[in-house]
């Protein structure tokens, strides 16, 4: 444990150094030369966790700093604990049955609703992306791509089943068919550089397929993810379907992989050590491990890879 902690600290330090090199900042802060009498103090946003449709602070009361591209402090992020994760899994489990039983049509409507709400707050998300280093045009492009990604998966909810299910011509007098069912509760480790588009690409196909999830936002770029929670919250996404944590990946990765009530773990990235750790821990309950490499093509396979196949037999007779 000591070694791990050491390692994390080193990595964190590295990230901090890296971000200090960045130059521009997009979130406006009171300029020094504004006369005192005209100055207005900006109201800073408190970023919290998103668990069970609520925005709690971490139970551990710990935090870490997110720095802007210029190295200035943007926000205190919650440094979620394993207990926060446990609460989030409970919420995801509670929401699982009704979300997986929700009609495909309804799931599609809700995903589309997320897109609508995001569209309305496009500027805010673009600004947050800029704050963490994106150029203005890149940020705008990413936000529109993220919205379109949601619309894309909204359209898949009532179609993937038709593509992947089958009627199987068994030799006996039985009707036999195979359908997809969601794996259940999924823990998602977002890509280290996951910003808005990355996060939505990670999450949208999973909920489109009826899974509920707990996502750990990128440690260094969690702003979009946690702001997105506000969008989800106002988009008819039932409480507990998406739960979002922020914190130290190294501290939580083992829990994400080992929790006995999590059915699958989705890992975005290519850190071989982390992959090994996750795959080892996942064996505790024969958890499905889904490794997503950077730049995976969007498509129905992103949905089907987090689905189980259920086959049903019934006699054909009088």
């Amino acid at each position: 444990m000591d070694k791990k902690n050491q390692k994390r600290t080193t990595r964190n330090a590295k990230q901090k150094t890296a971000s200090k090199k960045a130059v521009s900042t997009k979130i406006k802060r009171p300029a020094v030369d504004t006369p005192v009498e005209k100055a207005r103090l900006q109201v800073n946003k408190t970023y919290k966790l998103y668990i069970n449709g609520k925005f709690p602070r971490t139970e551990s009361a710990r935090y870490y700093n997110i720095l802007g591209a210029d190295g200035s402090m943007i926000a205190n992020m919650c440094r979620a604990s394993r207990k926060d994760f446990r609460e989030a899994v409970l919420a995801a489990r509670k929401a699982q049955l009704s979300w997986s039983n929700a009609s495909a049509y309804l799931r599609g409507q809700i995903l589309y609703r997320i897109a609508e709400m995001l569209e309305g707050r496009a500027d805010q998300f673009a600004a947050e992306l800029c704050a963490t280093g994106a150029s203005k045009s890149a940020a705008a492009k990413e936000v529109t791509a993220a919205i379109d990604c949601l619309v894309y998966y909204a359209g898949w909810t009532d179609k993937y089943q038709q593509i992947f299910s089958s009627v199987n011509p068994v030799a006996s007098s039985h009707f036999n068919f195979s359908i997809l069912e969601p794996m259940g509760v999924i823990s998602v480790l977002c890509a280290p550089k996951s910003s808005l588009l990355g996060f939505i690409s990670d999450v949208a196909p999973l909920i489109a397929g009826g899974n509920t999830l707990v996502a750990l936002a990128s440690e260094s770029a969690p702003l979009s993810a946690i702001s997105l929670a506000e969008v989800l919250h106002s988009s008819d996404v039932p409480a507990g379907v998406v739960n979002i944590l922020t914190g130290y990946r190294a501290e939580l990765v083992e829990q994400f992989a080992s929790h006995m009530d999590v059915n699958a773990v989705v890992y975005n990235g290519d850190d071989t050590e982390e992959i090994k750790l996750i795959e080892e821990q996942a064996a505790a309950n024969i958890k499905r491990v889904i490794i997503r490499r950077q730049g995976a093509k969007p498509g129905p396979y992103q949905i089907s890879q987090a689905q189980e196949v259920k086959t049903t037999w019934h006699p054909i007779g009088n």
Binding site: A171, S172, H174, N176, N263, E308, T311, T312, W313
Partner: peptide
Amino acid sequence: AGVIWANTFNKFDPTSPFGGYKE
């Protein structure tokens, strides 16, 4: 569960996918 047998049990066929959920 991965296989549901309704009004039958322990039927197998090469065309029929077989495998489990959970452990």
